[in-house]
């Protein structure tokens, strides 16, 4: 979307919608906040999955790890974590506004940094794996984290850990969460948009298209792969921290490491929108989230079957996604130059 007027107009429209949405649809503030998070999910998945060709099934790990890191920091700032969790929620952590927001932002910061460190350490091990081994290995990481969190009593084990109580009214809390997630999604988008224009962007595309050739050219493939994953981890960690505060309760199975919901949604949304494109994940997340919110509760348990079918159809019959399809159909709109082969170069080669 490199048209001169299109981009600014589009950005302005999205920004206007983001700012106005909580006022226009006050009843749906949380749902739209989740939409921003979904966009963040899809965008971060697509860095390694779409742009670099490393399809992770375990990115949800960073979401959950960030959530637990922030929970431990936020609780640990005011009381002893072990005692707090062993009380099984018997003790509520009620804070004033100042303390609360300091704890939330400290939690987000630690989640971001901690997850980047995780990405570096785990990535160093995982990125020696290619293709299916990488996908299954990362799935293994997410599942192990879930098992570990449910057996580790200090962080509450299977019964989880209650987050500090928001000092104000519930409506106000959802508005605050909305703002943070909206800003995070925007930051994520701007970061990846910038990253894809740098040497980094070109290098990860080279890794996707032919890693062996990139290696033979001396590209620091492992370094690029770890950076790509670290960027994902950075934003996913923060989104986890925010989501933990939003739900008010962190628990390993459904909230922190929901491998079959959020973990799969990331992949599905990128694929649906068109992986390996800047806007694809955004479009995919929006379409998916709206369809899901509208139909989910009416499907009486069949929604999961439908999700599986969607994955199959998407992967097998519509792999280019919405963006890929649109680019094929209207290349001029996306500023793709369809140059005619010039005869001039031919003879020079001879």
């Amino acid at each position: 979307m490199t048209g001169n007027w299109k981009s600014p107009a589009l950005y302005a429209a999205i920004l206007a919608f983001g700012v106005a949405a909580p006022f226009l649809f006050p009843g749906y503030t949380t749902q739209i906040a989740i939409l921003w998070m979904m966009i963040l999910f899809a965008l971060t998945w697509d860095i390694a999955g779409g742009q670099m060709g490393y399809n992770s099934l375990g990115n949800i790990f960073f979401f959950g790890a960030g959530m637990y890191l922030s929970a431990v920091i936020q609780v640990g700032m005011f009381t002893d974590v072990g005692t707090y969790t062993s009380a099984r929620g018997g003790e509520q952590l009620v804070l004033g506004y100042g303390d609360y927001f300091v704890s939330v932002f400290a939690g987000m910061a630690v989640a971001a940094v901690g997850c980047v460190l995780f990405a570096i350490v785990i990535g160093w091990v995982m990125f020696g794996l290619r293709g299916p081994y990488f996908a299954i290995g990362t799935l293994g990481i997410a599942l192990s984290a879930r098992e570990l969190a449910s057996t580790w009593e200090w962080i509450g084990g299977g019964s989880g850990i209650a987050m500090p109580v928001y000092p104000g009214l519930p409506d106000e809390k959802s508005q605050v969460s909305y703002i943070i997630l909206f800003v995070l999604a925007i930051l994520t988008f701007l970061s990846v948009r910038w990253l894809y224009t740098t040497r980094f962007g070109l290098a990860i595309n080279a890794i996707r298209d032919d890693e062996e050739k990139a290696e033979a050219m001396g590209v620091h493939t492992t370094r690029y792969k770890i950076i790509a994953w670290s960027v994902s981890a950075f934003f996913l960690g923060m989104s986890g921290a925010v989501f933990g505060n939003m739900t008010g309760f962190v628990e390993p199975m459904e909230v922190a490491f929901p491998t079959v919901t959020f973990g799969i949604f990331m992949v599905v949304m990128s694929l649906l929108g068109g992986k390996g494109t800047l806007w694809g994940p955004v479009i995919g997340a929006t379409v998916f989230h709206i369809i899901k919110e509208v139909t989910w509760t009416y499907m009486l348990g069949w929604q999961w079957v439908a999700l599986g079918v969607l994955i199959i159809v998407n992967v097998v019959f519509f792999q280019q996604g919405i963006m890929g399809w649109a680019q094929d159909k209207w290349p001029e709109f996306f500023g793709i130059e369809v140059e005619e082969a010039s005869a001039a170069g031919d003879e020079e080669a001879a």
């Binding site: 082969a341 010039s342 001039a344 170069g345 020079e348 080669a349 001879a350």
Partner: peptide
């Protein structure tokens, strides 16, 4: 140098 300048955008 290799004679591909005319095709550089292809």
């Amino acid at each position: 140098f290799v004679g591909l300048y005319g095709k550089r955008k292809l």
